[in-house]
């Protein structure tokens, strides 16, 4: 049961992120919500590679006689973190441009496209 703790944390992260996306009205808070979902999924990917009592998968000066955790999900997580930075930068730049045009970043006041 204690081994499931990272997965429960993942669900809490993704749940908080989706709650923020549904109910908050400030654009910066939406960016924070997307970042939370992203962190949850990165944690999920790293937890998939875990083996009990293993060390980090680096060959340089590693302790001998021990198994190593799986290295592939670490590569997937690294790619996902890079994509997350680009996404956050783009969303924050767009929030700045909306503030420049409309003077407010509440979703109720900047919405012009309807129907």
């Amino acid at each position: 049961m204690i081994g499931n703790f990272p997965y429960i944390t993942v669900i809490i992260y993704i749940g908080c992120g989706i709650y923020i996306l549904m109910f908050q009205k400030n654009l910066i808070k939406l960016a924070i919500g997307i970042n939370l979902i992203e962190n949850g999924i990165n944690l999920f990917l790293i937890t998939l590679g875990f083996k009990k009592g293993a060390v980090a998968p680096i060959y340089t000066q590693a302790p001998s006689g021990q198994s190593m955790v799986l290295p592939t999900p670490q590569a997937l997580t690294l790619t996902s973190i890079v994509i997350g930075i680009a996404t956050t930068a783009l969303i924050l730049s767009m929030a700045m441009m909306i503030y420049k045009h409309y003077g407010s970043i509440e979703v109720n006041e900047v919405r012009r496209l309807r129907g």
């Binding site: 996306l21 654009l27 939406l30 997307i34 979902i37 992203e38 999924i41 999920f44 990917l45 997937l76 996902s80 994509i83 996404t87 783009l90 969303i91 767009m94 929030a95 441009m97 909306i98 045009h101 409309y102 900047v110 919405r111 012009r112 496209l113």
Partner: peptide
């Protein structure tokens, strides 16, 4: 020059971002 394309782009970015993260899940 205009504000409407940025609003449309913001909506599309949030939707695409959630879609891609769920595909990764």
């Amino acid at each position: 020059d205009l504000g409407e394309p940025v609003e449309a782009g913001f909506k599309y970015m949030v939707v695409s971002s959630i879609a891609a993260l769920m595909v990764l899940f």
